[in-house]
């Protein structure tokens, strides 16, 4: 089994619901984003880009690309970043020593670091007393702590394909939150899955393919009408 995702950029409307759902489900403190949506070419999100006398507006959601050949895993000196049996790149929060080698190695810049205690960052945001968000329980993959609501200070973290949900056969939060169903999630090894069918039948691209990281997140090129 090799879990992967296809993102249909013609369907993406840049609403950033996936980023918000990701943040809420994975209990990310203020300032931390595992998942982002950009407007390529524009300095502001949701602003049109002029090209050849025409205006065009496309969006690009970027989260962990779940590389088959992950640079972050190769540089980790303590083996805290690993690939599980379903091809998902995960971080063991109990092993990470916080050297930030992976932040420097990741060509996509999706890794985030806990510069301070996340509880302190949430406190500063001024939520109502007793309010908290995110999946409330720890999740362990064969004894390795890969999800905990408040990560310890001084460890690196990133998108886990919502390991606490996908291990039970559910879809990641971003897939479920997308209002235009731009994200399709499934098994790349199964030739009958929707993701494999899309990759086979449609033209897809991956980010920074020339680096040889072999990402498992595929993009369907946007084909929006030019206005």
């Amino acid at each position: 089994m090799r879990l992967g995702m296809v993102i249909d950029l013609s369907r993406c409307i840049g609403c950033r619901s996936c980023a918000v759902a990701c943040k809420a489900h994975n209990s990310q403190p203020p300032g931390t984003w595992w998942n982002r949506v950009f407007t390529p070419g524009a300095s502001f999100h949701q602003s049109a880009v002029g090209k050849d006398g025409e205006f065009q507006m496309n969006f690009l959601p970027v989260s962990c690309q779940m590389c088959d050949n992950p640079p972050c895993q190769k540089v980790c000196p303590v083996g805290a970043t690993y690939t599980d049996e379903r091809g998902v790149v995960l971080v063991d929060y109990e092993r990470c020593i916080g050297c930030r080698y992976c932040l420097a190695a990741c060509p996509y810049g999706v890794r985030q670091f806990n510069w301070e205690d996340p509880r302190k960052a949430k406190e500063r945001a001024g939520y109502m007393k007793g309010y908290d968000y995110g999946y409330p329980e720890d999740y362990r993959d064969q004894g390795r702590l890969v999800y905990t609501p408040d990560r310890p200070r001084g460890v690196a973290e990133k998108c886990t394909f919502c390991v606490q949900y996908t291990k039970n056969g559910e879809s990641p939060a971003c897939v479920r939150a997308c209002p235009s169903k731009a994200r399709i999630f499934g098994d790349l090894d199964d030739p009958r899955s929707e993701v494999s069918r899309l990759i086979r039948e449609r033209q897809t691209f991956r980010l920074k393919e020339e680096l040889g990281t072999e990402p498992k997140v595929f993009y369907l090129a946007p084909a929006k009408p030019v206005r």
Binding site: G98, R100, L103, A104, G109, R111, Q112, F113, N114, W115, E116, D117, R153, G154
Partner: peptide
């Protein structure tokens, strides 16, 4: 006591 946040390093400049 406070964490690496006191160094003013952030995710884009992690070292």
């Amino acid at each position: 006591a406070r964490g690496l946040i006191v160094t003013d390093l952030r995710n884009p400049f992690s070292w």
